[in-house]
Design a protein around this nucleic acid. Sequence first.
DNA 1: CATACTCGTTGATCTATATCAAGGCAGAAA
DNA 2: TTTCTGCCTTGATATAGATCAACGAGTATG
Lengths: 250, 250
Amino acid sequence: MTRTSPKLQPYSQECSDCPIRHRAVCARCETDELERLEQIKFYRSFEAGQTVVWAGDKMDFVASVVTGIATLSQTMEDGRRQMVGLLLPSDFAGRPGRETSAYDVTAATDLVMCCFRKKPFEEIMLKTPHIGQRLLEMTLDELDAAREWMLLLGRKTAREKIASLICIIARRDASLQLRASDGQLRFDLPLTREAMSEYLGLTLETVSRQMSILRKEGLIVTEGKRQIIIPDFDRLLEETGDDSDGGFLV
Amino acid sequence: MTRTSPKLQPYSQECSDCPIRHRAVCARCETDELERLEQIKFYRSFEAGQTVVWAGDKMDFVASVVTGIATLSQTMEDGRRQMVGLLLPSDFAGRPGRETSAYDVTAATDLVMCCFRKKPFEEIMLKTPHIGQRLLEMTLDELDAAREWMLLLGRKTAREKIASLICIIARRDASLQLRASDGQLRFDLPLTREAMSEYLGLTLETVSRQMSILRKEGLIVTEGKRQIIIPDFDRLLEETGDDSDGGFLV
DNA sequence: CATACTCGTTGATCTATATCAAGGCAGAAA
DNA sequence: TTTCTGCCTTGATATAGATCAACGAGTATG
């Protein structure tokens, strides 16, 4: 089973020996810091489709996704929308030092976030440099992801965009574990066609058509509307237009 | 002259009371840190068009733009190119902790960079948290800029893209000072049509055509090929499709 | 049980931008 | 001066993807 190549390493890992199980704060943690963080943390749950915050609204916390998927989107005056961030479990949302949200934050699926009130979080950050270091690493990762995304938006064909998105989800999705015994990759596509179109800078009709084409060509198999099976990940990867080494896709 | 609105505040400021005049390291600096930084810094110059590093090549320094403009680009196997970063004076390039460059770095104009060897820079960073904090702020700014750019790439028309680019350059360009006495904005467009097309995800022919249209409509005036005059910044801003408040354009 | 709503698919047509092709201008080189 | 070369402009045509429109399956609602 060659499918266990580095290409398929999931992007992020839970830190299992840490009571706060998120990339944001789990690395190199020490007991007293964790206690301080524990005191200012709280959980919020959202149903699929619910809005967490609107762009421009006050956001007095930073947060880390525990389960589910959140999206960051921008909207133009006339309603055109572009997704600019896709937050999977352990990803971080909110900018220390900024009062309001710059983006619409939406729950793409049912969602649980672990929130930290911003003021005290910033204070703790100042006292414990490694939290800031961790945040810097994560932000640099996000910046690389954003730049890969820019290549997709600016230069890829609709077909390449769809193939790329499916590969990105497959790569990052924790349910990657759901790889069937025969080497196929099976997972849930956690986005509606509309959300996909907002991610890719396409219309939802184009997304639907291209999905159908990939299906007819056997590059993907669908079960129901959301379940996706990739019979041959490498073959799909060839349709993304990316360098074969996978680059910095996140 | 209402032109002095916050919309036109230049993005970054030089730190004039600091021997290392770059956003990367100038804030809150202390003498001993500066001395350590001085010891590992060196300057490199490039002519317009020269490549600083190719994607994938070893890059054992981080750097800050002193004068001129550098671009970060990605190239697909078949040659399609997308610019993913535009570095103006005081902007930072290179990722601490990464050995190779993820992008082609190119001098768009004649360029001087202030470089710090990576290893020692990382060591200094560990000892002086505020450099990391500064870097985090800058990276978050870049991420916001990248996301604004994603909206441009995914959803804007060619006309809106051109108008946006001109406004972005006008906003950020230090030679903004070159505002004529009559309230017009005059500055050098430091990019070839081809570089503009790589920035915008268009072909250079489309860039040229749309420039001609904006010119015919009087939204911009050109002198020679590079000199641009914006008679009415707010009117041009309306063509960008952005919210009137300017959002987080960087 | 009927109705309506959400989400996805597919078809027909339109159009913004790409592609292909030619030519212009200014500065550099001969 | 002439010739080149790089950069830009403009025209003719092609096409990928958008738009407009209809419909289908599943599920919630009254």
